[in-house]
Nucleic acid binder design. Structure first.
Length: 200
DNA sequence: ACAGCGATTGACT
DNA sequence: GTCAATCGCTGTA
């Protein structure tokens, strides 16, 4: 269970998005570990991606996306929810992968308390749900994911093989035809919202 | 200074 | 299927 190094993140966003599936997201909180396997993500690029926060250039909110790879980009949306991304690409090149769903692995009871629900398939199956389950908020924006503290990713090593499916991204209006949502096929913990454009 | 709206969720018809 | 909640970022003035 080694912590993913900066070199894992410092690559093309689409590559990182695909390879991050199956990795474990670890949140240490109150001296316990909350762990989920990443089963659904979306890739967001920079000035060439109309659906990206970075499309119109660097601002106070999206600054982390323009920094080096391997940091958490956490933003607040709809007045209610936080969403977690990991930054990609080299310094000054914008890119991030949105973590959309986890399969709960460890710390289920704490996640249930944090969410106020018991059904494991509803615990972390959505970008706003998983941040609430793992207590991820604005204080973790800009957090270095390679330190192995508070919030980080690990490679679980040996695991069952899986098929990767791609669809259009959820909840966006621009560039809905780009198949940049990646998910583990037949995994019951992915989010349930369907993309506006189903791709074959 | 301010109107508009969002990489969502949950409740309700 | 429809829709309100809720707040702070962003573009325009």
């Amino acid at each position: 269970m080694s912590v993913l190094p900066r070199s894992f993140y410092r690559r093309e966003t689409l590559i990182v998005a695909e390879e991050i599936l199956g990795k474990y997201l670890v949140r240490t909180y109150n001296k316990q570990k909350l762990i989920g396997k990443i089963v659904e993500v979306e890739a967001y690029e920079g000035p060439l991606d109309p659906a990206s926060h970075a499309y119109r250039g660097k601002t106070a909110r999206n600054a982390v996306m323009f920094g080096d790879a391997g940091f958490a980009y956490v933003y607040f949306t709809y007045g209610n929810h936080f969403c977690l991304n990991v930054t990609t690409e080299r310094e000054s090149v914008a890119g991030a992968v949105l973590i959309r769903a986890l399969e709960p692995i460890e710390g289920l009871e704490a996640m249930k308390r944090n969410r106020g629900v018991n059904d494991p398939t509803s615990l972390t199956s959505g970008p706003g749900r998983l941040t609430k389950a793992l207590k991820i908020g604005r204080e973790l924006n800009g957090h270095d994911l390679t330190l192995g503290q508070k919030l980080y990713l690990v490679d679980p090593g040996m695991r069952q093989p899986f098929e990767i499916m791609q669809t259009g991204r959820i909840g966006i209006r621009e560039a809905v035809d780009r198949p940049w949502r990646f998910l583990i096929e037949n995994n019951p913990y992915v989010s349930k919202t369907k993309p506006s454009l189903i791709q074959n």
